[in-house]
Amino acid sequence: MPITNSDTLQDLFELKTIAVVGCSATPGKAAHEIPAYMQRHGYRVIPVNPFHDEVLGEKAYDSLADVDEDIDLVNVFRPSSEAGEVVDAAIERAQTRDDVKAVWLQLGIRDNDAAARADAAGLDYVQNKCYKVEHARVVG
């Protein structure tokens, strides 16, 4: 379901294993700095980037389907035009592996059709919000 209030965001921040689709190996990019922030705050970050073998000291995977450990939340750093296919992959994992509980599209990324599909699949869904900003605001 679409998440809009701080109490529900707090629940998402209790999900500790985060697959970051589009995680960057380039320091200074948001897709690198925000996952690094997640790591510093005790989250297990699983990079999903087909162009790297390792990001942030963690093995990088080509796709969500390739990740062999359980995922709690999928955080998306891809253009809005690609977000729907990532959301569909998250829904597929949730239905076949029963692991993904939520999808988070970073600031500037939105797909309302994908939001409706995620909601229908029972996944929590955030779009157009920065994980780091919201974490600092809600958790402190």
Rank of each mutant, 00 (worst) to 15 (best):
I3E: 03
G108T: 06
L12M: 12
G22Y: 00
V86T: 11
D11V: 14
Y37N: 06
Q39D: 01
L64V: 09
E14W: 08
C130W: 02
L9A: 11
F51Y: 14
I46A: 08
G42Y: 06
S80I: 03
N5T: 15
V55H: 03
F13V: 07
V20M: 04
D98G: 15
V55C: 08
G42K: 03
G42L: 11
L15R: 10
D72Q: 09
D66Y: 00
A65H: 12
I18N: 05
I109H: 07
P35E: 11
E58A: 15
E69K: 06
D53K: 14
L107C: 00
N112M: 15
A19V: 10
N5V: 13
A121Y: 05
A118W: 02
P2L: 15
V139E: 14
V86A: 01
S80W: 07
T4D: 04
S63K: 02
D111V: 06
D124A: 14
N128Q: 05
Q106V: 02
D119C: 07
D7I: 06
S63P: 09
D53H: 13
V87L: 06
R110H: 13
L105Y: 02
V133I: 15
L73N: 02
L15W: 09
I91G: 12
F77P: 04
F77R: 06
Y61N: 10
